[in-house]
């Protein structure tokens, strides 16, 4: 039932995937969020597998996949996805991306639209958070402290930034990330994919938890207004991980409804 796929060992990095679900049809490639791995998407993937073949993927640097190249960004991840699809003979796929995986889906679709049947963005990253005055003041203050620490470190050869600033102000994701991945994270959170998103001309389904504090629902609404052929469904009561636990059934319900409505010839 489960097939494991990898890119040939000559190509770096190595991508770990699991294929499940029905054998026939346009596959759905499922990409998880930052700090997760394919296990976080398994239940949802299994439920979608009743309609289409499903590839669960460990993104580079997560799960059982190897680290990406030194200076990778989400565009590099999109290139890795393209190589993965070509290596596995996948001509066209539905892309399902959660959070960070959503960024990669947007990057990929704006570049290789012909390889994409449809896009499903679940609490996706990619847009800069809109801040109110309070939030703006807060981030200005933090930026100032950060610059101050770096300056002091530069002059006095201390490690204030690393030992005092980062543990205090660094996000959970940042603190958990190591080495290359920390750089990938910084690049990802500072990018804005608005331009790429505006180029997407594939049917797009935007699914969002109403109570998402990490990528607030306002971002979903903006993506919906940017992406031409898009539909937005907000799930009341759900957070950044609406597919967790039995919420997988709820997400599968809405995703399957989207897939059924947007094409009848992809099975």
């Amino acid at each position: 039932m489960h097939e494991r796929g990898t890119i040939s060992s000559l190509e770096k990095p190595e991508i770990h995937t699991e294929k499940l679900g029905v054998k026939e049809g346009v596959p759905i490639i499922v990409m998880h969020g930052w700090g997760q791995n394919l296990e976080s998407m398994r239940t949802l993937g299994e439920l979608l597998g009743s309609r289409n073949p499903v590839w669960l993927m460990d993104l580079p640097g997560f799960g059982k996949s190897s680290l990406p190249a030194e200076n990778s960004d989400t565009v590099s991840y999109a290139e890795i996805l393209k190589r993965f699809m070509e290596a596995n003979g996948i001509e066209r796929a539905h892309l399902l991306g959660h959070s960070f995986g959503g960024r990669v889906s947007i990057r990929f679709t704006s570049r290789y639209a012909s390889m994409v049947e449809s896009v499903i963005l679940v609490d996706s990253g990619g847009l800069k958070r809109k801040q109110d005055l309070h939030g703006k003041l807060r981030s200005m203050r933090i930026k100032f402290i950060s610059r101050f620490c770096k300056t002091v470190d530069g002059i006095f050869r201390t490690s204030l930034y690393k030992d005092w600033f980062t543990p205090r102000f660094g996000s959970r994701d940042y603190l958990n990330a190591q080495g290359i991945m920390r750089k990938v994270l910084v690049r990802a959170v500072n990018e804005d994919v608005t331009e790429d998103a505006s180029k997407i001309d594939r049917p797009t389904f935007i699914l969002w938890g109403e109570k998402d504090n990490e990528t607030p629902v306002e971002m979903g609404e903006r993506l919906h207004s940017i992406i031409k052929d898009s539909r937005l469904t907000v799930l009341p009561g759900k957070d950044h991980f609406p597919f967790m636990g039995d919420g997988a059934h709820l997400c599968a319900h809405h995703i399957l409804r989207f897939l059924n409505s947007c094409s009848s010839h992809d099975r």
Partner: peptide
């Protein structure tokens, strides 16, 4: 709680 988690909260309010 499982039932509420899986319920279609778009059309139903638990």
């Amino acid at each position: 709680l499982q039932l509420i988690e899986a319920m279609d909260t778009v059309s139903l309010e638990p």
